[in-house]
């Protein structure tokens, strides 16, 4: 059984935001409302000569124990057999409880107004109804054997996708040997996006 995980190497992320651009075009996200399925945070730490700049890409962590799925009252949020957490927009009533439940700030509303703007912005908009939206690991691409748009676009090779159940896969190895670590693991969400910390 495939279990998709993503590993992001913070040492090779240069903050070019190509992943954000690729994702927004692939998934027609409402960028005009400053809503992104993936976002690269630009942070500084330290002071004086020891100041450092950090680029931290954020996206849905496709948790194995997703709180967004538990709180969803209609069953619109579900988990596929390959471990990807998706939203069925026809079932989602947009109560936004999932956005409050998510510790990774991964969800945002795709509103009626966004759909109207999206039709002008993207031309043929695939979305028909408003709903909560989030990263899908580009599940439509995975199904035909392609990598997510952000992984394929990343110029530094910072983003890697693999199968955690395939121990021979380099991504699985990074997770299993502890090189890559999850975010906010203490919350018990069992995230499937791992980060190689900055050295």
């Amino acid at each position: 059984m495939t279990r998709y995980v993503m590993v992001i190497d913070l040492n090779t992320c240069v903050g070019c935001n190509a992943c954000m651009a690729a994702c927004s075009l692939e998934n027609q996200t409402p960028v005009w409302s400053d809503h992104w399925r993936t976002y690269v945070h630009d942070r500084e730490s330290g002071a004086g000569n020891s100041v450092r700049r950090h680029f931290i890409p954020r996206l849905c962590n496709h948790c194995s124990n997703p709180p967004c799925m538990t709180v969803c009252p209609t069953g619109a949020t579900y988990r596929t057999s390959d471990g990807v957490v998706l939203v069925d927009e026809s079932l989602c009533m947009g109560c936004q409880a999932c956005a409050l439940a998510c510790p990774y700030k991964a969800r945002y509303p795709y509103t009626h107004a966004d759909i109207k703007t999206g039709k002008e912005y993207y031309g043929a908009l695939r979305r028909k109804a408003p709903s909560m939206d989030k990263c899908s690991f580009c599940h439509h691409r995975l199904k035909v054997g392609e990598l997510p748009a952000c992984v394929r676009t990343c110029p530094g090779g910072s983003r890697m996708l693999g199968d955690l159940d395939n121990a021979a896969h380099p991504v699985a190895e990074l997770v299993h040997n502890g090189t890559a670590k999850p975010l906010l693991a203490h919350l018990g969400t069992r995230p499937n996006v791992y980060y190689i910390p900055q050295r």
């Binding site: 538990t70 709180v71 969803c72 009252p73 209609t74 069953g75 619109a76 927009e89 026809s90 079932l91 989602c92 009533m93 947009g94 109560c95 936004q96 409880a97 509303p109 795709y110 509103t111 009626h112 109804a129 408003p130 709903s131 909560m132």
Partner: peptide, 30 residues
């Protein structure tokens, strides 16, 4: 007030039908 704030009001039918709770027994909103 909660209903007015929903993004997709028609989908509220899924939580108003009695069998909705059978579909999502782990959701407090349901």
């Amino acid at each position: 007030m909660l209903f007015l704030h929903l993004l997709h009001k028609w989908a509220a039918i899924y939580i108003l039908t009695p069998w909705g709770i059978l579909h999502k027994p782990d959701s407090w909103i349901a």
